[in-house]
Amino acid sequence: MIEILSQTALATVQDLGRVGALGFGVGTSGAMDNLALAAGNLLLGNAEGDAGVEVQVFPFDVRFQAACTFAVTGADCGATLDGVPVLPWWVCAARAGQVLQLRPPRVAAWRGSRAYLCLAGGVDVPVALGSRSTQLRGAFGGHAGRALRQGDVLPVGAAGAAPRAVGFGVQPAGLVEPLLQDGLPAIRVMPAAEHDCYTPDSRAAFWQQPWKITPQSDRYGFRLAGPSLTPTVPLELRSHGIVPGVIQVPHGGQPIVQMRDAQPTGGYPKIGTVIDADLWRLGQAPIGSQIRFVACDWAGAQQASAWNRRYLDDIRRLTALYRGLRDRG
């Protein structure tokens, strides 16, 4: 069990998302940086899709009520255990009573904005509609269907009690495979249905100009600031299914990228969709930072997904290898 000591919240229990409930009006939710959560789980010997705690407001403090093996992945937030620094993306052991503190993310070689506290055994909240992710709008899933509060106690899966190898880690995907375009983080995007309905100037600006992530950005969507995007004629669409990554352009002309807590339907025109493999990159982009969109096609998106898959498969293989060596030693 871990106890939340922080007063600030917006931290939520997330796994890799809720699949198969779109038809009930239920969006997927899930970790904004799915690679970081999956990597942390694999390091700990968990299933890739076990639940962890997504932290996006710092400082964030928790107390381990029992001994627990853990890893903090995602943004490098200068974590300490009873005041002693612990490495990011590294398997560590906590004794009962120890306090883990996460600080605001450091401006490191790779700058993220969300950290994941992964626990051996996973956060063992009840599964709701196939997932442990918090569904904020529906007020179910995760811990009591809401963001965590001071005093909340989260159960850890029974498998977490078994001793695990500690003292090893991996490199963040953002360091292994950085993606830049003209000096800014790049996000690969496929054109969507209404892309060609925008003026040539608007289309050029969309692909060539930097986009700033405004403070009105959260797990539901990232509101971007940049050149105004104008359709050649006003567009009125019927409500239709959407997925995280869809880039909508409301009448004001400033795009909104739908993120993991996106509603499952929408009606604004769509100029593009962030490819599935790059949603974690955008999910880690800090508020106030700038990004660029880079055109991608289906084949490119599949290649990017294959890279993500290999990255996680390597972690799984290396973890098994390391554990094997430790057991023999």
Binding site: V19, G20, L22, G23, R238, S239, H240, G241, I242, V243, P264, T265, D276, W298, A299, Q302, S305, A306
Partner: peptide
């Protein structure tokens, strides 16, 4: 197809990955 989701006179299909071509 993972899920077929009707909208207002439209239909979204989510696909199982990987899918080499749509």
């Amino acid at each position: 197809i993972a899920e077929a989701v009707p909208g207002m006179n439209n239909l979204m299909l989510t696909v199982h990955q990987p899918l080499p071509s749509p």
